[in-house]
Design a binder for these strands. Sequence first.
DNA 1: AACTAAGTGAAGT
DNA 2: ACTTCACTTAGTT
Length: 120
Amino acid sequence: MLPSGLRTMMEDGSVKRVTAFQQRVYEAVTRIPRGCVSTYGLVARQIGCAAPRAVGQALKANPYAPEVPCHRVISSRFEIGGFQGATAGAAVRRKLDLLDREGVRFISGRLVDKRRVFKF
DNA sequence: AACTAAGTGAAGT
DNA sequence: ACTTCACTTAGTT
């Protein structure tokens, strides 16, 4: 059971439960500008968390897409990372497409221009 | 107790 | 430079 202050009513009437940790993750990710990316590790460091995997878990549960641009978070080795619960397949291709539309390119699974990494 | 959308370093190819 | 592999991390269920 979660604290009662951490509920969010969605437009369709459903209620999503968002933990304090998730709110910290979403707040940080919202600051990543269009055309840039960050990494799970950098987001974790930014919010004072030592476990980047926990950031991935929070983004997987992101109820605020696309307002919280979770597609702009990739792995520290400049690989694409996951999207909508998948680490491969159609969902990840959509993530690549979203980034491509913002001018962020990947070649053979790796981010081309490392200057696009937003350092907070 | 088990499971992660990860990170790191080490060792192999 | 690339690919595994083992180990670690901490938040959620």
